[in-house]
Amino acid sequence: MKTLIYITMLGMYCLLTNSALSQIVSENQLRDKISYWNESKSDIVKLQSVDQIQNVLDKLDDADRAVLSHLWLTKLSELEQVNAGQKHWLDNMLKSDLTLSGYLDDHPEKLLDLITISRSAKSTIRLLNVKHLATVLSQQWQQDAVEWTNWLEPQTSNYAALIHWLKTTSPEQAKRISAQWLNADLLPSLPDNHALTVLLTKNYSLELVGYLVQRRADEFTYQYYQQLPQTSDSFSAIAQLDLALGNSDLASQAILALATHYSHELSAQTLIKNALHKPSTQWFAITALEKVKDEEFRTALLKRYDSDASSLAKAAKKQLKKGESL
């Protein structure tokens, strides 16, 4: 008899855990739940004692449990470090099979995972780890004890921590790091241009930009150059764009930036005119002429193309005239 009750209980437990752990909500329900916890119950979301939070969670249905667990995991990820109780709770959450799925309004035919507690826990642990490693790196650096190659493995938490830390450095620190990297001939070992471009954003060095444009252009190179007008003065920006023109993958971006932001500068005008002559760049340069704001430069170019009947000249004149009306 006892065994039977045991088996029945076990069966019910299995039934409960299996059927109830995946909840389906609509986008509006999710929004309402998030708002409810963040606004009406923000004092609970702020709770950081594991016992308190577990107490609250135990009384909730699965959907609310998923939302609150997720919000609390997010809160944990914002800490610099977690205590033993929190660490234990995090590890438990890694094993959770609690999920919240939904048919979002914009994808009504596809059931999407909106919140997966194990994944939220995993990303919290990852984010905390990156922060922790960044602190370790910072301390090592202050003690002049960094073994840089340990931090350059792509797609690792160590590399993410290096980036995370570099973003927090001062221009003065960035300058010292750049010098150390150059001394140690570290640039060829960089897995991509992420670290290099973060350093450059902190502390501009034409020498480092020279290295950057010699490397294969990747997403970080493009993003770096895109932010040039915000991060550099005209003089150094034009010098960097001049270097970029030597890398065929960066040429169209460089020409467009020169035409859009620096067409009033004589040095930029020279670079644009050179690009107009070069067969590999002339179409990009012609198209970019629409962006030339400098009246005098535009008039001079129009005059130059005036007697030219080629299709290139025709397009150039069209683009220059379009720019006039902008």
């Binding site: 997403e219 493009y222 895109q226 993958d249 040429a251 467009l256």
Partner: peptide, 21 residues
């Protein structure tokens, strides 16, 4: 008020040629 994506957040780039981004 941050939402970490765990990946670089794309910023649109002015380029006439296709880029990784």
């Amino acid at each position: 008020n941050n939402i970490p994506l765990g990946l670089v957040v794309p910023i649109p780039v002015d380029s006439l040629t296709p880029i990784p981004g």
